[in-house]
């Protein structure tokens, strides 16, 4: 089975974020990056599926040259080939635009299965996988915890709200969005890193994928970004651990009256 796993490069979780001069996004200089958390579980799910049923795992990332770090990391963990989607026209796309580009690449590669993480840690759209499925005209399932392959179909365990789950079967080809924490991530071994150097990365731009500018036109626009105003005034308690402990309990008792 040919599986494409979509990996987004996002600023590290503990990054100090600064708003850019236009006020429309963050400054990208001086940032360090990592693979979006739930995408890492999607990669692991792809590698485990390949081990079970055979096939090929393609690690795909969209973005400037720096996202090749993400692809190389995935190749070192065991993916077979990289797909790098890069074009001036791919900058600042909304979820619809990103999904349109990825769907065109998945079509070109004739992938049987596309996996994404459930949500990105930067924009947090939680939509890309579902829109890819719509653009490809294939079935999808979201917030997936477990995947079984049954000939031309998949049987997947979906997480619902309030502690419920549900198994759903759907035909291949398909798109799944993967929940964080569903498997144990593997890390790249030295052997894996060496092997990755010989693996190929395909580069696709808008022209190769046959995409015209109007197909990627934004359907929503960010006016500005900013640090949120606090809805509550937080009282910060300072001092040595013993002082902080005594003050907090005093406040909880006499001010907040919770005891």
């Amino acid at each position: 089975m040919k599986i494409i796993v979509c990996l987004k490069q996002v600023p590290k979780n503990d990054s100090v974020l600064r708003v850019n001069d236009e006020g429309t996004w963050i400054q990208d200089r001086d940032l360090s990056y990592e693979i979006n958390e739930s995408d890492q579980y999607a990669l692991e799910a792809a590698l485990q599926l390949k081990e079970k049923v055979g096939g090929e795992v393609l690690a795909l990332s969209l973005g400037p040259a720096r996202v090749q770090t993400v692809i190389k990391e995935a190749l070192a963990r065991g993916a077979d080939r990289g797909v790098h989607l890069d074009d001036e026209a791919f900058k600042g796309l909304d979820a619809y635009g990103v999904a349109t580009v990825i769907a065109a690449a998945a079509k070109k590669e004739e992938a049987a299965l596309v996996l994404t993480g459930l949500q990105s840690d930067d924009h947090g759209y939680a939509q890309t996988g579902v829109i890819i499925a719509e653009q490809l005209g294939v079935a999808h399932a979201t917030i997936v915890m477990d995947v079984e392959v049954q000939e031309a179909r998949l049987r997947v365990k979906r997480e619902l709200e309030s502690g419920y789950f549900q198994w759903v079967s759907l035909p291949l080809p398909a798109v799944l969005t993967i929940q964080s924490g569903i498997n144990t991530l593997r890390y790249a071994t030295l052997k894996g890193i060496m092997a990755a150097k010989k693996k190929e990365i395909s580069h696709y731009d808008a022209a190769t994928l046959g995409l015209a500018a109007d197909q990627l036109a934004p359907r929503q626009k960010i006016l500005r970004i900013y640090v949120p105003q606090k809805s509550k005034q937080t009282q910060f308690i300072e001092g040595t651990p013993a002082e902080v402990a005594a003050r907090l309990l005093e406040k909880l008792k006499n001010e907040a009256r919770v005891f």
Binding site: P11, I26, H123, G124, K221, I225, Y226, V227, P228
Partner: peptide, 10 residues
């Protein structure tokens, strides 16, 4: 955005 560290007007 950024898991609540920032917000965006859209």
């Amino acid at each position: 955005i950024f898991q609540g560290k920032m917000v965006a007007d859209v």
